[in-house]
């Protein structure tokens, strides 16, 4: 009976771990989408209104995005703070580097250069987002399966 309870506990734990990782992956996909929308919003605001960065952030957060706290953190602490969000959101290094590059170059040059920089970053991030969106269900399935298998391995090894 104890062995059965132990086995169930191990399976539940590993399954929980799997679900936690898939949750992080999903969060990362949503966050990437939100960053993409922020970049597109910035591009539009620069293109049509020549808006300063503060105004871009203000008008974007007025839409009440899902990651409003993270966006406010970027606004106050700078774009490098995306790296600190790694614990919460499982962002790939490539996504992080695009966001940092976008942030580092934002507001540093004339309108034309800004727009071409925006387009470059948006295109790169859009491609990554599409890949992430396509691969996410499979990735999640594999993650959950691996977690369950590792749980079963532990059960076989110890029980």
């Amino acid at each position: 009976m104890i062995k059965l309870i132990g086995a169930c506990a191990i399976i539940i734990c590993t399954l929980g771990m799997g679900l936690h990782i898939t949750g992080k992956n999903k969060k990362s996909l949503i966050f990437t989408k939100e960053m993409l929308e922020l970049m597109k919003h910035a591009k539009d605001k620069i293109e049509y209104y020549n808006a300063p960065i503060d105004e871009i952030f203000e008008s974007y957060t007025a839409k009440k995005p899902q990651f409003i706290d993270s966006i406010n953190k970027i606004k106050t602490d700078g774009w490098e703070s995306v790296t600190e969000m790694q614990n919460e959101i499982n962002l790939s290094k490539e996504v992080q580097s695009i966001i940092n590059e976008f942030g580092n170059k934002l507001g540093k040059s004339n309108k034309q250069d800004q727009l071409s920089m925006c387009n470059y970053c948006i295109n790169r991030l859009e491609n990554i987002y599409k890949d992430m969106q396509k691969n996410l269900p499979e990735k999640n399935k594999v993650t959950v399966a691996l977690c369950i298998y590792s749980g079963l391995m532990i059960i076989i090894l110890f029980i």
Binding site: I46, N50, A51, P52, I53, D54, G107, K108, S109, N110, K111, D113, Q114
Partner: peptide
């Protein structure tokens, strides 16, 4: 003074 937005004040 440019509010970190050179493109606006260029």
């Amino acid at each position: 003074l440019c509010k970190n937005s050179v493109h606006t004040y260029y």
